[in-house]
């Protein structure tokens, strides 16, 4: 809307303020809760004025959920997912957009279909594969009868085994192998004029050089946008880390560690009163790194998503 009248201005501001309240009030409650004592927080009504116990609660949460180690795990996992995603999707998009090869559209549609199969949908088979990443190949060998043949010939059985449970690889790989980033890159690559590619050919640059020295620098803002999105996506993962890490001490992530702070009623830990103040302090700690990432990268992020200047 280009029209500017006082009434409209007031209305738009009112709508913006509503949006701000919706986003901000829960955050404020988390912050306030993290500053109160256990007694204060369990006394109605809910306080909206911060108390004075923030540091105690933070320290308690940090200690109880072992957040130091967990944050590092989360950081490793999120950076690896975001980085792996950027590499994988830029290369696949490059292949799809700039090369003509048989089966190109098939490859494109196969990648497209993975968009409709988020991790939560395929979590059981994905877990089965993660438990032994080579099991699909074992299945192929079994089906074509190679294993039995080999066993009868040499007496040795073939049992391929590559266990990804309780490893960073297992945490990261299934989250990397999705199509979202490929699409972002594809859309961007499609806006690159053909003449740029031809000019680089005339200058003597091969495809790899074109990719590295022209496409990648041009897609910087896209890369940052994708990094931000994927970092948040990986950081907020709950189900997959919970499933694949049985060794929570070494491989648990920060988000799953929050669970340790809220013992459920009738849990085996036995009827504790949930320490909401500590749990909220833990929340505060866990949401800080993504907040920093978004704050640092947001101006690139916005430019990357609306990028028209090349």
């Amino acid at each position: 809307m280009i029209e500017k009248t006082p009434l409209l201005n007031a209305l738009t501001h009112a709508i913006l303020l509503c949006g701000l309240a919706v986003a901000f009030v829960p955050m404020w409650l988390v912050f306030v809760a993290a500053t109160l004592t256990l007694t204060e927080i369990n006394t109605p009504p809910i306080s909206i004025i911060p108390g004075s116990h923030l540091w105690e609660n933070l320290a308690e949460a940090w200690h109880r959920a072992d957040l130091g180690a967990k944050l590092i795990n989360s950081l490793i996992m999120s950076v690896a997912v975001a980085g792996g995603k950027i590499i994988l999707s830029s290369v696949t998009a490059f292949g799809i957009v700039f090369f003509r090869f048989p089966g190109r559209m098939l490859a494109f549609w196969l990648i497209f279909i993975t968009l409709m199969l988020p991790l939560e949908v395929r979590i059981v088979p994905t877990y089965a594969v993660a438990a032994n990443a080579l099991s699909p190949y074992q299945a192929i060998l079994d089906t074509i009868g190679f294993t039995t043949l080999w066993a009868s010939l040499t007496g040795a059985t073939i049992a391929l085994d590559w266990n990804l449970l309780n490893s960073y690889t297992g945490l990261v790989l299934p989250l990397v192998a999705t199509a979202t980033g490929t699409f972002l890159y594809r859309q961007f690559f499609l806006t690159i004029p053909d003449e740029l590619f031809e000019a680089s050919r005339m200058d003597g640059a091969g495809p790899v050089r074109f990719f590295r020295e022209i496409l990648i620098p041009l897609s910087n803002t896209n890369m940052i946008a994708l990094f931000t999105i994927m970092f948040l996506y990986a950081w907020n993962q709950y189900l997959w880390p919970l499933l694949i890490t049985t060794d929570r001490v070494h491989f648990g992530t920060a988000v799953t560690a929050l669970r340790a702070l809220i013992p459920a009623m009738g849990d085996s830990t036995g009827g504790d009163v949930p320490n909401w103040n500590v749990a909220m302090a833990g929340c505060l700690i866990v949401i800080t790194p993504p907040l920093i990432v978004v704050a640092a990268l947001q101006r690139f992020f916005i430019r990357g998503l609306i990028a028209t200047d090349k």
Binding site: L196, A199, L218
Partner: peptide
Amino acid sequence: LEPRARGCAMVFQNYALYPH
């Protein structure tokens, strides 16, 4: 032969300069 091996240089309609 690939373009680079032909010894030609080309000027394009839209200039095709590398923007970065």
